[in-house]
Design a protein around this nucleic acid. Structure first.
Length: 555
RNA sequence: GGGCACGUGGCCUAGCAUGGAUAGGGCAAUAGCCUCCUAAGCUAUAGAUCAGGGGUCCAAAUCCCCUCGUGCCCGCCA
């Protein structure tokens, strides 16, 4: 139900496949692909047909059929591959028409379905670190991708203001003698409490008692916990905003403690609910017990999470959660309950990412083995400023700051988002602070070059507009044409890293073009090349905005 | 012990869904390129038993099985 959104563009792949099927009825769409070897634009794999005794003649008629298509430039058989080149003028015109008429390529069909991407949702027990940032960056980029795709998208953060960690934070606050609520003071108290727990397990009892009081609605605790969480949350929101990550809604978990949704969940689960010494649990298909309520009557995280998902489903058709890999098994149970037992009306998707560690080991706020996002933003900005200052002696301080800020933010986001989320990462400063090669500044730099070209362009008189294209121009234009295919891959897999790869390849092709095809003053070639540069700017702006890269006009 | 991922040149990474033409980039290294639209760029050289073994197939980095290594999960924690 949640896949109505479509990209509107001329899909030549499908057109070719349809034509091929007139000659080879069993030809599947998947036998045609975007060529990656430089031999063609599209390539057809004919291995499955090559044993046919009439293969030669069928292939020959196929070649001539392909050649008769108005957008095909060349077509030739090479072994069991059929290599097709598309007329560059044809696709350039397609892209241009879309941009001129719809202001974007590809255009989209606006889907009425509402999508909710829940991401970050990190416990408000300290500043956000670079490991958690992976969640935020992936979630925010996914939301942007789906928005670009035509979905109505909101983002949400579930603030965990219940349970052991937060009440531990509160206990630390009490034992510190209720100091001024600063992140540092709160964190110090929190660390002290957990140190005591390590030495003496009984300390946990104190927290459990606080949970009971809290869940019964004790006024002063509720007020203090809310204040503490607000302070911590502000510390998390700020660096995220620096990265351009604005989360639409913050939902407080404590709101579900005595909620309608929670009652509703329990009612709907009634026939499945089992009892063990007063505690309530649901049994999964695999025979695992999932406890939702303690024997003392207080709620467990699963129950509050179920209530939260029920709440989300009231307003959204497709719920997407971005979660750490440690939640994989947990989600299995959650999903089973929501889909089979509660019969939630919304579709559910889960996106997982692996953890980021440091060379010194696992990241942990409590132990102090962390790199916070604040630190990273600060150091990246400093480093970028140092570099741009050395390169651009002509610019004033505010301009330098503006550039270094954009570079730092973009580089941080890109470094995270370009990696397959399943891969475990080790954070290294020298990599995080590298602004060369496969990085955001590499992309931004090519954009700055186009700005310069456009700024220095004055249409010349007496030129004919050339309409033939060299290999650099052809390759670049076709790559731009293939942008929607990349978006499709991303949407289908709920991944954004393929878009990062696409952007790097696109920029590399632009650099080839830039280094080999003079634009300004190129006579008959000039208008055509200016055209290409303008369209390139559109595509790169589009793709960059999905990944949160801030393009700037000079660097 | 059971389960879920990941393992690609010294280091990082793409490709794996839907098997197919010389495994694509980057960092680091070496040698070059700014009288020419910004050198955060470009060119060239060197560097790969695609963790190891077996299997399926005309064809395996890609699919299946086993082994090893790494991370994560298996709570009346969140």
């Amino acid at each position: 139900m949640c896949f109505k959104s479509v990209l509107i563009f001329e899909d030549l792949k499908l057109k070719i496949a349809d034509e091929v099927r007139r000659h080879m009825p069993s030809f599947a769409d998947s036998f045609i692909e975007l060529d990656s070897t430089g031999r063609a634009d599209f390539t057809l794999k004919l291995f499955r047909f090559s044993r046919d005794p009439n293969f030669k003649s069928i292939a020959e008629s196929l070649v001539s059929a392909m050649k008769s298509l108005d957008f095909v430039e060349t077509c030739e058989l090479s072994g069991n591959y059929l290599n097709i080149r598309i007329k560059t003028a044809f696709i350039l015109n397609l892209i241009e028409t879309s941009i001129n008429e719809k202001a974007q390529y590809p255009d989209t069909f606006q889907d009425p379905d509402r999508v909710l991407v829940e991401h970050t949702s990190t416990n408000p027990t300290g500043p956000i670190h670079v490991g958690r940032t992976r969640n935020s960056v992936i979630g925010d980029s996914l939301a942007r991708l789906l928005r670009r795709y035509g979905y109505r998208v909101s983002t949400q953060y579930l603030v965990n203001d219940t349970g052991k960690q937060v009440l531990g934070l509160y206990l630390g606050y009490l034992e510190s003698g209720r100091p001024v609520m600063t992140i540092k003071n709160l964190l110090d108290g929190y660390k002290r409490v957990y140190k005591q727990i390590e030495e003496n397990k009984d300390k946990e009892k104190e927290i459990e008692n606080l949970i009971k009081k809290y869940e019964s609605g004790d006024g002063s605790i509720v007020r203090d916990v809310k204040s503490i969480c607000t302070v911590m949350l502000d510390g998390i929101r700020k660096p995220l905003l620096d990265l351009g990550i604005k989360i639409d809604d913050y939902v407080w978990e404590s709101g579900f403690l005595k909620s309608e949704e929670m009652e509703n969940i329990i009612k709907r689960l009634e026939e499945y609910l089992k009892d063990e010494n007063g505690a309530k649990y649901v049994e999964t298909k695999e025979g695992r017990k999932i406890f939702i309520r303690r024997s003392d009557g207080t709620s467990l995280y699963v129950l509050r999470d179920l209530a939260y998902h029920l709440f989300k489903s009231l307003n959204y058709d497709w719920l997407i959660d971005v979660l750490g890999e440690d939640h994989k098994d947990y989600v299995k149970g959650l999903k089973e309950i929501l889909e089979d037992k509660i019969e939630l009306r919304s579709s559910l998707s889960f996106v997982f990412y692996s953890y980021v560690s440091l060379e010194s080991g696992k990241m942990s706020t409590r132990s102090g083995n962390v790199v916070t996002l604040d630190d990273l933003v600060e150091r990246a900005t400093e480093k970028a400023l140092e570099i741009v200052r050395a390169k651009r002696l002509d610019l004033d301080e505010s301009k330098l700051k503006e550039i270094s800020r954009a570079v730092a933010i973009s580089a941080i986001r890109f470094n995270i988002v370009r990696i397959n989320p399943e891969k475990q990462l080790i954070f290294r400063w020298e990599e995080a602070l590298s602004f060369e090669g496969d990085s955001a500044p590499f992309i931004m730099y090519s954009y700055a070059r186009t700005t310069n070209i456009i700024a220095n362009y004055t249409p010349a008189d007496n030129v004919r507009t050339a309409n033939d294209f060299n290999t650099y121009e052809k390759a670049l234009v076709f790559k731009m044409y293939s942008f929607p295919y990349c978006l499709n891959t991303c949407r289908e897999s709920l991944r954004v890293d393929p878009l990062a790869s696409y952007l790097l390849e696109l920029v590399r092709l632009f650099n080839d073009f830039y280094n080999n095809c003079r634009v300004l003053g190129s006579g008959d070639d000039e208008p055509k090349r200016i055209h290409i540069v303008n369209i390139y700017r559109k595509i790169i702006e589009d793709a960059s905005s999905i990944l949160g890269i801030r393009l700037i006009d000079e660097m």
